[in-house]
Design a binder for these strands. Structure first.
Lengths: 230, 230
DNA sequence: AGGCACTCGTGCACACGTTCACAAAGCCAG
DNA sequence: CTGGCTTTGTGAACGTGTGCACGAGTGCCT
């Protein structure tokens, strides 16, 4: 069954661009810009103007023909659609290198995703404070999730521990997972998972570099300093 | 006419999955598995078996009907296609929270992307050692790129400094950039850029959570223009 | 009031990606 | 050597995403 009757469905590709528009609109708003055209927004977002209009049209007809979009109103509508009208506390599993960086990165809380807790299996890490949050033992995960009403879990463990971490998150009641570990997590269908894998990104860049080299080992004579603004 | 006659072109979607297959195949090889079917590989990779076969078919016909794929041979072919037959040194710009985590994350070098250098504008950070690499001043960037033959740069600065960092990387001769800053970089067309944005990922999860809630939760004050962003 | 310049919203065609379904090809048993 | 079983490789159908082109509103100027 596929009862997508809930509401109008927004295409995945559009959903992934809305945060970009949102950030740009926020910056424009801070600079005092009150109205913006799809053309300008497209330029700032590095995309096609028609795509911007189509994307925004999924939210409803919030533009004014001949004028553009009212920045603040559009910010409000996008935030509403993305569910950013309230905070979404997150819990981080794994207080290693990455977990520490994530907890210390202030941008999390600023953008509506406060770190409700960070846990680790390693007793020696428990008690230390990262970014204002004390590391707790992983046994306390269910309690954190329940008391802080956490829906989103972040897996920042080594690959070998990631599946177990995900299992514990799911068992604790988390329904979305952001996975930094380089493995494919196996979770119930209802759980939404997104993966961020640095190695994959680098390997994709490697492919293009290799392709650029055209098979010969390398090329790229340094010195071609072309700086053009799109 | 075919614009890219260089070699058979591999679809982007396939390129982004090859690293996943590669990791799985490496693990299987380590476990002594000599042959694998598309079905099994699909299961481990969380994708469709037909997709696996089509993806691999872009590399050539390296499977044996009725049997499957020889793991080690496939590993070799994928590595070759991704340009992973030799190391790609990377340089990291920004020794803040994220830069430190990246430098400290050993997995970089292990996977063929040794950190050739890490630079920062902040004099107070210069000289400190992260993950075995000494932080150097950003003025030394061109020298690092040239002497170490670096093609890939990593932008790990705050958003406000990211464009400048990218400009410097391009000027130094880098041709691929992995961008962790939450802005859209403006670079010459020839430069390959990939973006990793944690906030975007979280906001996409937020969308699905909000959608899951069915909109029953929110009841935001219906003021005209409210909810300003910080 | 009327005309004009501007920009949104969207139908349509095309490109890209995914999945199915099946012939072709290899292996093995007897 | 033949027949049956397995699994690949790929043509074709389908679905999703992109970008053009243009009608439809809107506001400004005369």
């Amino acid at each position: 069954m596929a009862p997508d009757r809930n509401r109008r469905r927004i295409p995945d590709a559009t959903v992934s661009r809305l945060p970009v528009y949102l950030r740009i609109l926020g910056e424009q708003s801070a600079e005092g810009v009150e109205s913006i055209s799809s053309e300008r927004l497209a330029e700032l977002g590095g995309v096609n103007a028609a795509k911007v209009r189509k994307d925004l049209s999924y939210l409803g007809s919030y533009g004014t023909r001949g004028v553009g979009y009212e920045v603040d109103y559009l910010v409000y509508q996008i935030r509403r659609e993305l569910g950013l009208t309230h905070d979404w506390p997150v819990v981080i599993v794994g207080a290693g290198n990455l977990g520490q960086a994530l907890a210390g990165y202030g941008g999390f809380g600023e953008r509506g995703f406060p770190v409700a807790g960070i846990v680790d299996v390693d007793e020696s890490k428990v008690g230390t404070v990262l970014g204002g949050v004390r590391v707790r033992h992983i046994d306390e995960l269910p309690q954190i999730v329940q008391t802080k009403r956490v829906n989103i879990g972040v897996v920042a463990t080594p690959g070998s521990a990631a599946q177990e971490a995900a299992d514990l998150l799911v068992k604790a009641g988390v329904t979305s997972i952001l996975n930094f570990a380089p493995i494919v997590l196996s979770v119930p269908r209802a759980i939404e998972v997104r993966k961020v894998d640095l190695a994959v990104e680098l390997q994709i860049l490697s492919y293009h570099e290799q392709r650029r080299a055209g098979g010969s080992i390398h090329a790229v004579p340094g010195g071609t300093s072309r700086s053009a603004t799109a």
